[in-house]
């Protein structure tokens, strides 16, 4: 399947992918949408990055998307790449997978036998491997809209538009001054997107504070498994994981307290 093509075509050029048949799904224009329905934001799989960046409902409910989109590749690439392709690529360094994981999203997979809804947890089964079977297609991403939400994405990259050295996606749902629920996911520090469940558990039921966020950062830093590579050694990446967790949670808490945030952005 090819949508934006900005993962598959580079892989084909590198001979990492050698498909016998490529099906272009760009004509399925009904799969490009962002709408509010049944207390969820529903995003069609063929929605492009620039549309996510410019979306008013997303900016209002989940400003984490605009945070992430501004640092995903560059505006010209964002005119083609899609959210469905980003998630289905199942690359551990990819940003939207962590965003959707932190927001407790689920995905809709369609096939000849109908549709099934799969949590982000179950969607990525390994590196570059998803729960999508043969003859199935990822068609929609669903994000529950809950009260008291605040969310933010924090990323460190070597140069503008690069893959993350480390990135952290954080979501908080406040009930008054108590964290009713928390979502935390990290990019580029494991074989797949790292869902920091132990840090989430720490956060639940507590009052937001710098000390709490530092503790959550320390746990996230322990629970990820970065590899040394050209982007840095392991201790540096663990340091970033802790620091970026603090920054994402701090910003998410500010946004949750402030309520709604300003509308869509145009950065094309």
């Amino acid at each position: 399947m090819i949508a934006g093509g900005h993962s598959l075509l580079p892989m084909m050029k590198l001979r990492l992918a050698n498909p016998e048949l490529v099906v272009d799904i760009n004509d399925l224009e009904h799969l490009a949408y962002i709408r509010e329905q049944d207390s969820e934001i529903r995003i069609g799989a063929l929605t492009r990055h620039y549309q996510l960046l410019e979306s008013e409902p997303l900016a209002r409910h989940f400003p984490i998307f605009a945070d992430a989109e501004r640092v995903i590749a560059d505006p010209v690439v964002r005119n083609r790449g899609t959210i469905g392709g980003s998630l289905a690529q199942a690359d551990a360094a990819e940003d939207l997978s962590a965003v959707c994981s932190a927001l407790k999203a689920s995905v809709v997979i369609a096939g000849g036998g109908g549709e099934r809804v799969v949590s982000m947890e179950d969607f990525h089964v390994g590196p570059y491997t998803t729960a999508i079977d043969d003859a199935e297609l990822l068609v929609e991403i669903r994000i529950p809209v809950r009260p008291g939400a605040g969310s933010a994405h924090a990323k460190v990259e070597r140069r503008a538009g690069d893959w993350a050295i480390v990135a952290v996606a954080g979501g908080l749902w406040l009930d008054g001054e108590t964290i009713a629920d928390a979502g935390l996911a990290l990019s580029a520090v494991g074989l797949t997107t790292v869902h920091a469940t132990r840090a989430e558990e720490l956060l639940r039921g507590k009052r937001p504070s710098e000390e709490l966020f530092a503790e959550a950062g320390a746990i996230a830093s322990e629970d990820c498994s970065p590899s040394p590579d050209g982007r840095g050694p392991v201790d540096y990446k663990r340091h970033l994981a802790g620091e970026l967790t603090k920054r994402a949670l701090r910003r998410a808490a500010e946004r949750a307290r402030a309520g709604t945030t300003p509308g869509g952005h145009t950065w094309r």
Partner: peptide, 27 residues
């Protein structure tokens, strides 16, 4: 560059700039 990094191949497709090294002609 042929890797969608350099932008030398940018053309407009339906008015939007795209990197033509990362679009199949058939698309």
């Amino acid at each position: 560059c042929d890797t969608s990094n350099c932008g030398a191949c940018v053309v407009q497709m339906d008015g939007l700039p795209v990197k033509s090294c990362t679009v199949l002609a058939a698309m």
